[in-house]
Amino acid sequence: MLRFVLRRLLEFVPVFFIIVTLTFFLIRLAPGGPFAAERAVPEEVLKRLNEYYNLDAPLYVQYFDYLRDLAHGDLGPSFKKPTLTVSEWIALRFPVSLELGLYALGVALLIGLAAGFLAALRPNTATDHVPMSLAMAGICIPNFVLGPLLVLVFALWLEWFPVAGWDLQQDKVLPSITLGAAYAAYVARLSRAGMLEMLAQDFVRTARAKGVSETGVVLRHALWGGMQPVVTFLGPAAAGLLTGSFVVETIFQVPGLGREFIQAAFNRDYTMIMGTVLFYAGLILLFNLIVDIVQAWLDPRVRLS
């Protein structure tokens, strides 16, 4: 098990390196720079700015400088928001995104698992068809459609929730639902499929022959295996919840890292983009690793081999 984790961690090194390099050159090779857009900057000041941030050095020098700093855990200063360093900005904004992501994950698992298992227990009845049709809707209605529609109905017309913001508890309801809905839909479909597959297994028949009640069959015998596809999905889902929050944070004006990233991308804030991208990439890799470990641990056949 330890060797498995170590091997996976080693694999991260080249992946991370590819991401750093790709992002770095993608950003730099494009025309324009962080200070190009500002009209009122005199030539002299621009030159000094570029000098100060080392932007006039040859590209490869900048690249190796960046790698060196990165090795020391330094993501550099923000070009456009110099009050804080990139690391500090991430430390400030990420907890908000994390909170939103966790709420959304909660929504996804709670609704998704309940709907999926309910559907699996009564296949081809209304308890199956209704949640599954809703799941299809959840998959087909993108969050940038769902979000505005929820705002329109629940914030503007019914006035149950605020339109935007992230201070009060009720601010957090609509963004969490918007972000979590699609994942709830996937979780529902996956858990239904997983559960149906488990219920068709021979060992479930054995359990019934032993006199286990239906509840016992589901909870003790089928649930464990039926959850596996959902667990596998959680890795990509975590990544999706992070990138999905770009849109949700924009719609609901949530001061999270996603909105910061989009702004940085528009402003060509080099260090900020690099910092957030690397941070996201690290998170996604980490989630994938955790999911692999959890999955291996859930299945004794993998765990003990």
Binding site: D202, A209, K210, G211, V212, W224, P300
Partner: peptide, 24 residues
């Protein structure tokens, strides 16, 4: 029936690999 199954009438199946729960 459930009270009879397993207690008074027991059953064993063909393939002991798939008939035993791999997770327990």
């Amino acid at each position: 029936l459930r009270a009879i199954r397993g207690r008074h009438i027991a059953m064993i199946f063909q393939d002991p690999m798939s008939a035993l729960n791999p997770y327990l």
